[in-house]
Amino acid sequence: MLNNLKAKKVINACFAISMVFLCSCSASFTYNNLSWLSSFWVDDYIDLNKTQNKQLKQIINTTQAWHRSTQLPAYKQDIQNIKALFNNTLSIDQLKEQVVFAKKHWQNLLEYAHMPLAELGATLSSEQREELLNNIQIKINDEREEFNEQTPLERKSERLEEQFEYYEQWIGKLNKQQKALIKSTNEQHQDSGALWLEYKQTRLNAAKQVFTNAEITKKEFINQLSTVIKERELYMSDALLKTNEANLDLYINLLYELNSTLNDKQRQSVNDQFDELIETLNDIIEN
């Protein structure tokens, strides 16, 4: 029951290095061709010149080598640890500790890459900066429009269906008790969509201030942009942070309660899913 690693949309085109998909049949292909595939994603935001493209690919290749040798083995260990908890006496505190630890890997990536990405950002012309900021704003506006097209009730109903599909993928056919647990948790889940949009806009506004400030030196520009890239929580409201924590507790409690309802066939299905993730990681690490 581990969340899939999905592509992250962030405030800089250079974040294409985060496009890592670990839970699909094409995971190895995607990971091993990251430098080539990222160009399609970057083109949605900005047109880089040849020198900048070369610099970006160097960042991606260097980061990927570090990620493959240090982070993927850590992901694998996390999955093995969670699997061990799942198959032994499971406590809420232990489970939350492991899940929180696993979630920190994304921050590790930003810690490693934030400075070279900011240095690349410093090479952008005024036209490129405007293009990048405008395209990101369009993306946020599109997300906001899509969000507002649904009522809170419609979003909660859609999320419930997604939750059923997610847990069925892991444990197979759900019984009435399991569906009731998932439904109850979904009812308590706090919709943070508006808060996430607010966060994205706040972070983009911070990037705009850096990109449009003609008074700062190159060194100051790099330092300030690297902060925008790395310090994600700095731009999150207290309401979003509290909502994230509350929803995480709900998720942990649901995993704990579902664990006690599994029959032998469902428990084997979960173990098979863990093994598939581990096998995928082994394949990527070794190739």
Results as ranks from 00 to 15, higher is better:
residue 109 L to Q: 11
residue 146 E to L: 09
residue 269 S to L: 13
residue 251 Y to L: 08
residue 73 P to Q: 09
residue 282 N to I: 09
residue 100 V to M: 00
residue 266 Q to L: 04
residue 123 T to S: 08
residue 181 L to K: 13
residue 140 I to Y: 14
residue 278 I to C: 04
residue 63 T to E: 10
residue 6 K to Q: 13
residue 207 A to Q: 10
residue 29 F to K: 14
residue 277 L to V: 02
residue 82 I to K: 00
residue 218 K to M: 08
residue 286 E to M: 12
residue 130 E to M: 12
residue 119 E to G: 04
residue 243 T to N: 06
residue 84 A to I: 03
residue 203 R to T: 03
residue 93 D to A: 11
residue 84 A to C: 02
residue 7 A to Q: 12
residue 101 F to Y: 13
residue 102 A to Y: 12
residue 277 L to H: 13
residue 74 A to P: 04
residue 256 Y to D: 01
residue 9 K to M: 06
residue 41 W to D: 09
residue 281 L to D: 03
residue 90 L to Y: 04
residue 171 I to Q: 15
residue 216 I to L: 11
residue 67 H to W: 13
residue 152 P to T: 04
residue 4 N to E: 11
residue 136 I to T: 05
residue 91 S to N: 02
residue 98 Q to E: 12
residue 98 Q to W: 09
residue 16 A to M: 02
residue 216 I to S: 08
residue 194 A to N: 07
residue 245 E to C: 04
residue 104 K to H: 12
residue 79 I to M: 07
residue 48 L to K: 07
residue 236 M to A: 12
residue 53 N to E: 15
residue 262 L to R: 05
residue 2 L to F: 15
residue 287 N to V: 09
residue 51 T to N: 12
residue 257 E to S: 05
residue 163 Q to R: 15
residue 206 A to Y: 13
residue 110 L to M: 10
residue 176 K to F: 11
residue 282 N to F: 11
residue 41 W to F: 15
residue 55 Q to Y: 14
residue 258 L to N: 00
residue 186 N to S: 10
residue 187 E to I: 11
residue 81 N to L: 09
residue 95 L to Y: 00
residue 197 L to D: 01
residue 258 L to R: 02
residue 250 L to V: 03
residue 232 R to Y: 14
residue 241 L to D: 04
residue 232 R to L: 10
residue 224 Q to S: 10
residue 94 Q to Y: 06
residue 153 L to Q: 14
residue 107 Q to A: 09
residue 191 D to H: 07
residue 252 I to R: 01
residue 27 A to M: 09
residue 271 N to F: 03
residue 193 G to C: 03
residue 205 N to P: 05
residue 175 N to Y: 11
residue 263 N to P: 00
residue 109 L to C: 08
residue 245 E to Y: 15
residue 21 F to N: 05
residue 3 N to T: 10
residue 214 A to E: 13
residue 123 T to K: 15
residue 187 E to F: 14
residue 196 W to H: 12
residue 160 L to G: 01
residue 1 M to N: 05
residue 88 N to C: 03
residue 34 L to M: 08
residue 252 I to L: 11
residue 241 L to K: 15
residue 64 Q to F: 10
residue 210 V to I: 14
residue 217 T to D: 10
residue 195 L to R: 10
residue 15 F to R: 02
residue 29 F to Y: 15
residue 134 N to H: 09
residue 29 F to V: 04
residue 105 H to I: 07
residue 189 H to L: 11
residue 205 N to G: 05
residue 97 E to G: 02
residue 192 S to M: 13
residue 159 R to F: 10
residue 218 K to E: 15
residue 70 T to F: 11
residue 60 I to H: 02
residue 169 Q to P: 05
residue 280 T to P: 02
residue 105 H to G: 00
residue 50 K to N: 12
residue 203 R to G: 01
residue 18 S to A: 04
residue 24 S to D: 13
residue 130 E to L: 13
residue 287 N to G: 05
residue 227 T to V: 12
residue 261 T to L: 03
residue 33 N to S: 06
residue 270 V to A: 01
residue 22 L to I: 07
residue 30 T to G: 06
residue 270 V to P: 00
residue 157 S to A: 07
residue 220 E to R: 14
residue 247 N to P: 01
residue 199 Y to N: 05
residue 191 D to P: 00
residue 167 Y to K: 04
residue 66 W to Q: 04
residue 124 L to R: 06
residue 108 N to S: 07
residue 140 I to T: 05
residue 200 K to L: 11
residue 197 L to E: 07
